[in-house]
Amino acid sequence: MTIRKKYLNWLVILFLSVVIAVVFQQIFTSMTEQGIASGGPYDNAAAYPRLIAILIGVLIALQFVLSQFRSTENDSDELVVNIADLRRPAILLSIFAVYLTLLGILGYHLTTTPMIVSVMVLCGMRFSLTTVGAALVISFVLAYAFEVYLKVVLPGGIFSLNIPW
């Protein structure tokens, strides 16, 4: 199954349209309530984002119209993306999202090694002692470098798990 790049372009246009809608929603609510959506250049903090949002609106409208009139055979927008190719990036982002969510709860040391192992297995490595060992080494070497040399306190989570190096 494939998806045409043209539709990905539409997805970007949709995303930017939502951004523009949020800009105007904020101008008419939050900024108006604060009294910063009117007046001269000093007081009116909404004028500039409004101008940029309108500019983006004009540009994406132009982009949308142009994409409709393009010739089909030699246009890069007509290239296709295989949906199956997107499986691994989608899983990677999911693993990463779960990792970030658990990082604050369980802390760096409990979450990082499983994340690295998951990514390695996703990339085609076998789940083995070597993989787990490599993940442990990567996790602890980076933690040591940041905590000892750069004095960064990594998230300890609800168990406050931090290694006193």
Binding site: Q26, S30, I36, P41, D43, N44, A45, A46, P49
Partner: peptide, 11 residues
């Protein structure tokens, strides 16, 4: 935070 009016934008 806007530098001029110190109002909050999109926060």
């Amino acid at each position: 935070t806007d530098e001029f009016s110190t109002g909050y934008r999109f926060t």
